[in-house]
């Protein structure tokens, strides 16, 4: 065990630097960070297999929370157990923590400037466009599945959130409940066969 210690230290350091680097340079959120992780940990360092990485991506996306943090937890745990997990989380959250801290210090001075305010106003319209683009892509994919249940859930959830102002958490819990019911019914049908 004594011999493993320096090796493990180096492994952890490398894991920290890799996650730090990935997090500092990935713009555009969770789906992008997973491609970067694959390039680094699968193709570059050969620490995990391609199939494992895909499984981790699916898990990270289906669990609650930020996809980048979830993926870092899974990869860190795989590579170096609990310590690896902590190190990977730190590497992932430090860059946004530092960058946003700096920006928020400037924000007040920034936002009261007329020119900056005009640029931000225009960018708000841009952000709205980006969000609607994402919604259209996701919505079209969801409708293509041709499941009446999922279409109904989507429409009801939209009305509940947008017009009835129902708490988002209740909407998610209700859908999860329907999902559990669906799983139970599905299992009973399988058992009958």
């Amino acid at each position: 065990m004594e011999n493993e210690k320096p090796a493990k230290k180096r492994l952890l350091w490398q894991l920290f630097l890799s996650t730090l680097y990935i997090s500092a340079f990935t713009f555009g959120g969770g789906y992008v960070i997973i491609t970067f992780m694959k390039r680094k940990f699968v193709d570059g360092l050969h620490w995990i297999s391609n199939k494992e990485m895909l499984d981790y991506a699916a898990l990270a996306q289906s669990a609650p929370g930020a996809v980048a943090v979830n993926a870092a937890i899974l990869v860190g745990y795989d590579i170096c157990g609990f310590t690896g997990m902590i190190v990977a989380i730190l590497g992932t959250i430090l860059p946004p923590l530092i960058i946003l801290s700096v920006i928020s210090l400037f924000y007040s001075a920034f936002a009261s400037n007329l020119y900056v305010a005009l640029v931000l106003k225009g960018m708000q319209a841009g952000v709205a466009a980006v969000i609607f683009d994402v919604v259209l892509s996701l919505g079209i994919d969801a409708i293509k599945e041709k499941s009446i249940l999922s279409d109904a859930i989507m429409i009801i959830a939209f009305f509940a959130a947008c017009f009835l102002n129902i708490n988002v958490i209740f909407i998610i819990l209700a859908a999860a409940f329907i999902g559990v019911m669906k799983a139970i019914i599905y299992n009973k049908r399988e058992a009958k066969r």
């Binding site: 289906s62 709205a128 969000i131 609607f132 994402v134 919604v135 996701l138 919505g139 969801a142 499941s147 249940l149 999922s150 279409d151 859930i153 989507m154 429409i155 009801i156 959830a157 939209f158 959130a161 947008c162 988002v168 909407i171 998610i172 859908a175 999860a176 329907i178 999902g179 559990v180 669906k182 799983a183 599905y186």
Partner: peptide, 19 residues
Amino acid sequence: NVMSCLRPVVVALIASAGI
């Protein structure tokens, strides 16, 4: 099965926040 019921909710919630 549970995930297949959560995904459409996510789309609806993003749409609502987008509005």
